[in-house]
């Protein structure tokens, strides 16, 4: 599942996408996020599954443009901590 969290506003699109098919439920992204906007929960979008997946906390979904601002790389070499922490490369940011 491609889970998109975020929004579009006048200045652009701000989405964090988590590909749960790639996710191995290790939880490293949750630890890596300095703003603590990720949590591991039992998959809320598939009630029949028992797998734990990371989600963006509901209250944070409307302000990631700002919350994630400090992690945005100043050059192309550096990656956001959540993206870097994910070995299966399941996390992407749209901006």
């Amino acid at each position: 599942m491609q889970a998109n969290y975020g929004y579009r506003d006048g200045s652009g699109e701000y989405y964090i996408t988590i590909d749960t098919d790639k996710c191995d439920s290790c939880g490293k992204c949750v630890e890596a996020c300095p703003s603590k906007i990720l949590v591991m929960v039992s998959d809320p979008f598939d009630p029949m599954s028992d797998a734990d997946i990371p989600i963006v906390i509901e209250a944070e979904r409307k302000k990631i443009k700002y919350t994630c601002g400090p992690c945005k790389p100043v050059d192309k070499e550096r990656e956001e901590p959540c993206i870097k922490a994910c070995e299966p490369r399941a996390i992407t940011h749209s901006w």
Partner: peptide
């Protein structure tokens, strides 16, 4: 009917 992708706007 299983969700394969989603996107939501509830900010605005």
């Amino acid at each position: 009917g299983k969700v394969t992708a989603f996107l939501m706007n509830d900010k605005c």
